[in-house]
Design a protein around this nucleic acid. Structure first.
Length: 259
DNA sequence: CACTTGACCTGTCCGC
DNA sequence: TGCGGACAGGTCAAGT
């Protein structure tokens, strides 16, 4: 990392470390926890990068991608990483690696849904921490499951045939089981499609993701359900736009159990 | 304590 | 064409 600069000060923060301490340090490894990207440096400092809604982290080999939305730039031996973010919600935070685990967001993160430790039992226990909250609000909470956002929660609820307004306490075993299966299924499909691009999302090479092309409900308000042709409805749950099929995801009804 | 709402920002789209 | 308002992928502080 040959340089680290910000053109919007709030996008780059130093927490218990200084600019001089990290410039010139070699990047030793990179990992992800939930929605946070961790870039570890050789001197035991770490960059926590969160794209939030409109962030992009672009590999810019020919140093030509800096534009009006560029909030920070990480210089590399060859080229640079450009951090663009229209809405300025995203951030790069630099801290000592030993402080990473106690970061307020990371410390609370729930289980990684693609890890083998993610089971029905684990999900049931996490949902049990929210009694009267809607299942949608609970799944958006990063302490329930790490990494789910508004798009994937809507898709997961459709695949699991669960109404987003169901309280966590109202979910029966079969519904929780379907959610536990749907979560990794939907996420793997999202990853395979390169992610979900409404407008801004790009991968490091600048490519947009095509997952929304195969979405069942998100962004399909007024279009026919791919399963039953009922028109997709949009409501507001937990302050977020929420898409669902009222036939496939009935509210207040329990699906018949097989015995 | 559990849960919901407003704030943080800017750009776009819709109705008038 | 122009303008006000609602809304957009997330998280946190403040409010109920």
């Amino acid at each position: 990392m040959t340089s680290l600069t910000a053109s919007w000060e709030k996008s780059l923060r130093f927490a218990g470390t200084q600019h001089e301490a990290v410039v010139g340090q070699k990047i030793s490894s990179v990992e992800r926890r939930g929605k946070v990207l961790l870039v570890h440096l050789a001197n035991d400092c770490t960059l926590l990068i969160h794209l939030r809604m409109t962030g992009q982290l672009l590999l810019d080999e020919h140093r030509q991608l800096v534009g009006p939305m560029t909030r920070a730039v990480i210089g590399l031996d060859r080229g640079q990483l450009v951090f663009n973010d229209q809405r300025k919600f995203g951030s790069i935070v630099v801290m000592e690696t030993s402080d990473v685990d106690s970061d307020s967001l990371l410390a609370r993160l729930g289980p990684e849904p693609l890890a083998k430790e993610f089971t029905v039992k684990v999900l049931a226990a996490r949902l049990g921490r929210h009694r009267s909250a809607s299942v949608k609000a609970a799944l958006l909470d990063q302490s329930t499951v790490a990494g789910l956002g508004n798009i994937y929660v809507d898709e997961v609820l459709f695949v699991a045939r669960v109404h987003p307004l169901q309280t966590c306490a109202s979910l029966n075993k079969a519904e929780i089981s379907r959610l536990a299966e749907a979560i990794p299924t939907v996420l793997r499909a999202g990853i395979a499609a390169g992610g979900s691009t409404m407008r801004d999302y790009r991968d490091a090479s600048g490519a947009s993701g095509s997952y929304l092309d195969q979405a069942q409900v998100f962004g399909r308000t007024g279009e026919p359900c791919r399963s039953c042709a009922t028109l997709i409805t949009k409501i507001r749950v937990a302050g977020r736009g929420t898409h669902l099929c009222l036939t496939c995801q009935p509210f207040g009804k329990r699906p018949r159990e097989n015995k």
